[in-house]
Amino acid sequence: MSWPRIVSLGGILFILTTWESICRSLGIPDFILPRPSAIITVAVSQAAILLPHAGVTALEVLIGILISLMIAIPLSIVMFAHPSVENAIAPFLVASQAVPVFAIAPLLVVWLGYGIASKVLMAAVIIFFPITVNLLEGFKSCDQEYRVLFQLMGAGFWKTMRMLYWRWALPHFFAGLKVGVSVATIGAVIGEWVGAQQGLGYLMIQSNARLRVDMVFAAILWLSAMGLGLWVFVGSLEKRVITWK
C-alpha cells in the first residue's frame, strides 16, 4: 500500500476513533449524534431499506451525467468553433451556476413533478458546467504549432477536432467530469429533499423527522460511497483512455 493511501486511511481511522470515543465518554444519545460504529451497523443491517433508495438516486445521477455530457460536449465544440457563440452563451452559463440549486429545485419539482425527471435535471444542471468549461479550455489550450501543422496538411475543422483537439482536451474533459460526478449527488439529493417519493434524499428527510439520525448518517455514508465510486470509475476510465501520459 502506498504512503498517501496509508496516511489517508490513518486520517479516517483517527477521526472515526475520536468521534466514537467522544460519543461514548460523553454519553451522547444516538438521536443527537450517533457513534460511527452505530452508523455502520445501520448502514449494513438496513441495507434492504437503503438499497432501493440508493438505486433511485444512482439512476438520477447517472441519467444526469449522461444528459450533461450530451449537452456539454456539443456545446463546448460549438463555442470553440464559434467564439461569438461563446460570448453570447457565457453569461447564461455563469448565471445558471450563480443561482443556488436550492432556489430552482422547487420550481423544477412544480414543472416536472415528484418523479425522477426533476432530480435528473437538477443533477445535470450541476454537472454540465464543469465539463463544458474544462472541455472548452482544453480545446483552447491546444498548441498553435499543432494547429498550423493540421492547417498545412489541409485538415478541416472536424478532422482536426477528431484527431487533435478532442484528444488534446481529454485530460481537461476528465478533470471536469471528475468534478461533475463528485458533486452530481448534490443536485439529485436537493431535488429529493424538495419533493420526492424515493431516493436517499427522501429517506434522509423521512428519517430526520423520526429522529432516526443514525439512518440519516447511514444514507450520507451510502451517498459518499456512491460519489467515491463514481470518482474511482472516472479515474480508471481516464487511465484506460489516456494511455500516452
Binding site: 501543422l149 498545412l152 501520459k245
Partner: peptide
C-alpha cells in the same frame, strides 16, 4: 511540407499513425 524544430508528433498516435497523418487527412 513543413518540418519544425519541434517534432510535433501526436503523443496519442503510434509512430506509424503519426507518419500516416498527411495521407489520412488528404
Amino acid at each position: 511540407a513543413y518540418m519544425q524544430q519541434k517534432d510535433l508528433l501526436l503523443p496519442w498516435f503510434s509512430l506509424l499513425d503519426n507518419a500516416l497523418l498527411p495521407a489520412r487527412i488528404s
